[in-house]
């Protein structure tokens, strides 16, 4: 009886898991179908694998857009780390007066709808001639991710035992040795989690990319959205494009699930 109940619950779990995963599964399957098969009703599970979708992606220059996505994600993540590590270190290990105000300021900028500060940025970028420029987009992404990165990073720095830091200071370690030799090795997993999250947010970002880029600096998400303009059947090629664009983040997230949750929950979840 107990065994029966147990396997019933397990089956229910798997049923829900399958329902949740189904759209992603279907995207994977459709990516390898011909357009006729991808749009067939009733849907087919048995089909001849077809790679024409991927071929058409390359023909439409998806590689360039992926490269743009990669550039903006990596560049913005590096900027964020460069700014957030010292800030988080100071806020956590050498706290100053008014630290609450600084923290509040950072989190409040995250509540500000991006669109509100975007109009002047758009105008400035336009007059500087960097409206369709991947470096400019990276800067904006860095600004978008910085507040959350400071918060997450601080929660990781907070776990560094103060005794170790104090011992190093008494031994006469200067600030640089203290940061690089003592503190950074301890918080390295945390920094990796923050970097991963910033990368994911930038890679997946659609709104700013649509507004601040047009062709040269266009990233993968707006490219995907522009895919549906043609007539005729497009489900196969759309699925292929979505799959290729989403895969890097999917793989990274699958591998680093635990760090991801901890980072996103700002260290509150152990």
């Amino acid at each position: 009886m107990r065994k029966l109940k147990n396997s019933l619950i397990t089956s229910l779990t798997w049923l829900i898991v399958i329902i949740f995963f189904f759209p992603v599964f279907w995207m994977f399957i459709n990516a390898f179908k011909s357009e006729q098969d991808a749009s067939a009703i009733p849907p087919t599970l048995i089909f001849e694998p077809n790679f024409s979708g991927f071929q058409r992606l390359m023909d439409r220059g998806m590689a360039d857009y992926l490269l743009n996505s990669l550039t903006s994600s990596v560049l913005s993540t590096l900027i964020v780390l460069l700014l957030a590590i010292p800030a988080a270190y100071a806020l956590s290990i050498r706290p100053i007066k008014k630290i609450q105000d600084v923290l509040f300021f950072f989190i409040s900028t995250r509540f500000l709808p991006a669109a509100a500060s975007l109009l002047p940025l758009y105008m400035i970028f336009k007059s500087l001639g960097v409206l369709d420029n991947i470096n400019a987009l990276s800067l904006v992404y860095a600004a978008m991710n910085l507040p959350i990165a400071v918060w997450m990073m601080r929660s990781f720095f907070n776990e560094v035992p103060m005794e170790i830091v104090e011992a190093a200071q008494i031994d006469g370690a200067n600030f640089r040795t203290e940061l690089i030799r003592i503190v950074l090795p301890i918080v390295l997993p945390g920094i990796a989690a923050v970097a991963l999250i910033c990368f994911i947010f930038s890679w997946n970002e659609y709104f700013l990319a649509t507004l601040l880029t047009t062709s040269d600096a266009k990233t993968a998400p707006p490219f995907l959205a522009s895919f549906v303009d043609g007539r005729g059947l497009f489900l196969g090629v759309l699925s292929a494009a979505s799959m290729v664009a989403a895969l890097p983040v999917l793989i990274a997230g699958w591998i680093a699930q635990k760090q991801l949750v901890r980072g996103l929950a700002m260290g509150a979840v152990k």
Binding site: V24, I200, N204, L224, A245, V249, L250, G253
Partner: peptide, 9 residues
Amino acid sequence: TPFLLMPAA
């Protein structure tokens, strides 16, 4: 996976 999937996709 749904949470990781690019929202535009």
